[in-house]
Amino acid sequence: MASGKSGKYYRLDGLSVLVADDNRFVRTILITVLRGLGIGRVLQAESGEEAMAILDVSTQIQGASDIDIVFADHLMAPVDGLGLLKWVRHHDHEKLKFIPYVMMSGEADENAVRLARDGGVTEYLAKPMSVANVASRLLAIVDKPRPFIRAPGYIGPDRRRQTLPYGGDDRRVITGHRVLLEEASAEALPPVGQAVPEVASGSDGDAGAESIPVAPETVE
């Protein structure tokens, strides 16, 4: 197709989604939307804690019972959507650590959006809710996955979504290496939030930090 789309309709009935929202009516409407769109299995949690329990159990179940995507509201108490997100991203189990996570929030709190991004959110569902914006988030997760970044202070999808040209040198002083999931080493980095050790100089005596080769340069 000229549009670059395959034209194929996705079959969503094999997907399993967890909805975490302490507002019962909002939760009901989101579940209605997801089921209407054809999602095969929708689980619900009425709090962040209940979501943690359901996700924990899911790590112990193999195969079809996996939860594929989490939709969580930002404003929950005592564990809010951000707390749940951090718990997910720091979970030992890969099933959870890399799970696509959609944060639902209004635009009022810009800082919440920033915190969610830096907490490793996959997509943001801006309220008010609509069938169209829920569908677009699902498509984004399926069609536009980003590699995961594991860095001191951050674990989550690559926060750079666009590639834009810019002049000058890349000023970031980080060194990256790209690995497949099975090669990712849990020991390669200190836990998130801990001090970053210096990397020893290479045998060639190169003392300069190298930038990730991202040309054409990318920006957030």
């Binding site: 890399f98 590699p147 995961f148 970044i149 594991r150 860095a151 001191p152 690559d158 002083v173 980080i174 060194t175 990256g176 290496h177 790209r178 690995v179 497949l180 999931l181 990712a184 080493s185 390669a188 980095l189 970053v196 210096e198 990397v199 020893a200 100089s201 290479g202 190169d206 003392a207 300069g208 930090a209 190298e210 990730i212």
Partner: peptide, 12 residues
């Protein structure tokens, strides 16, 4: 990367 470089793992 040399001394002081920060390591980033990009996981596909």
């Amino acid at each position: 990367g040399g001394k002081g470089a920060r390591v980033v793992e990009i996981i596909e």
